[in-house]
Amino acid sequence: EWERERFYYYAFIQFLITGVNGSFLTGDIFNLFVFFEVMLLASYVLLSLGGLKKQLRAGIMYVLINIVSSMLFIVAVAYLYAVTGTLNMAHLSVRVAEAGQPDLLTAIALLFLVIFAVKSALLFFYWLPESYSAPPTAVSALFAGLLTKVGVYAIFRMFTLIFYHEPGITHSVIAWMAGLTMILGSIGAVAYGNIQKVLAYNIVIAIGFIVIGIAVFQEAALTGAIYYLIHDMVVKTLLFLLGGAMVGLVGTYQLKEMSGMIRNHPYLGWMFFIASFALVGVPPLSGFFGKLLVLQGTLETQFYVLGAIGLLSSLAVLYSTMKIFMNGFWGENQLSKEDEKTSTQGLLLPCTLLICVSLFLGIGVEWVNPYVAEAASDLMNPAVYIEAVLGPA
């Protein structure tokens, strides 16, 4: 809306993207902290832009939680620098291997894990459903696709490149956190009858599933986790846009107060249906290949319980998204075109582009997978990155 746009909405979107790109590209752990803060400061403004009561209530909780986690982040960076004497990630990897204080480094590693778990909604996700359902649809969709994924990326980067000295402790803790996250996220997704809350809890389920890749620490699982991460960024953004369109049409978030929209908006309905099946991992859609490789990794490393939880969470995803589809699009049509609160004009084009990307990730897996597999191989062999940064040993 124009009232929000004139308060520098587009400028803060650019700051948010800057923070995300900087977090992905930096090779220095202090710069990672800085870019996280750039991203978070922009998200604080975007979350509260408009000044609605629910935005301010969710914004206070979101800001406080991230301030505490950022404070712990800078403390953890200071401890790590005190032990290793460097902040360059490649150099940190070498110094951690040479350091003679494994217990202290394990404590620092667990502190970093808690910090990034809060930022990615891994187990500590109590802030996410309220925060992601408060802002306008365009902001919620961007948050759903990007913000938590930066925290997941940081976990992958830290625990493959730097903290690999005690995988029996750190990766076991990550496995427990992934399993509990999927269980609790599934309960929330099934229990709620609010579109935005259901979709928010599906973000939580996906975070737990993606982190299985680093928990089992096996190349096939890592490949699948990266592929599923890319797919999830696209499909979650799409689902939040489609869910926002549904809310805009009927003027309510409650599923029990809507039905029959497929009669007036068949394209919207079938896009939601396809996106839901992609999220579950129905072949040949984009979620299938990544999910298959992650589950294959759990079987090969004998993480059977984690694999079973991942499969059961897929059923929770299917049930919760079909609940939205059946309640929102099926049944008796309650609204005529004239009664609709807003229009979908202009929204269907970006949704169409996103669903095309999702279909390409599923059907074109043979073209995409070599790049994803190479990324997973480099994560499993940090010497490749170290040599690229520091030169030959």
Rank of each mutant, 00 (worst) to 15 (best):
residue 252 T to A: 00
residue 269 G to P: 00
residue 292 L to V: 14
residue 248 G to F: 07
residue 286 S to T: 09
residue 267 Y to D: 12
residue 278 A to Q: 02
residue 283 P to H: 09
residue 252 T to S: 11
residue 224 G to I: 07
residue 277 F to I: 06
residue 230 I to G: 04
residue 235 V to Y: 02
residue 245 A to V: 08
residue 276 S to P: 00
residue 268 L to A: 04
residue 222 L to A: 11
residue 300 E to D: 08
residue 285 L to T: 04
residue 225 A to W: 05
residue 254 Q to S: 14
residue 287 G to F: 12
residue 219 E to L: 11
residue 254 Q to F: 12
residue 265 H to N: 07
residue 255 L to Q: 10
residue 257 E to M: 02
residue 236 K to T: 05
residue 282 V to F: 14
residue 231 H to T: 11
residue 220 A to P: 09
residue 280 V to M: 04
residue 291 K to F: 06
residue 278 A to N: 07
residue 279 L to G: 04
residue 270 W to L: 11
residue 222 L to R: 02
residue 281 G to M: 13
residue 300 E to L: 07
residue 289 F to C: 11
residue 297 G to M: 00
residue 248 G to M: 06
residue 292 L to G: 08
residue 237 T to D: 03
residue 278 A to F: 00
residue 261 M to H: 08
residue 300 E to V: 01
residue 276 S to A: 15
residue 244 G to V: 01
residue 272 F to N: 01
residue 272 F to W: 04
residue 278 A to Y: 06
residue 260 G to V: 05
residue 239 L to T: 04
residue 231 H to C: 12
residue 295 L to D: 03
residue 226 I to N: 00
residue 296 Q to L: 15
residue 242 L to V: 12
residue 269 G to M: 01
residue 233 M to H: 09
residue 261 M to W: 05
residue 288 F to K: 07
residue 254 Q to W: 10
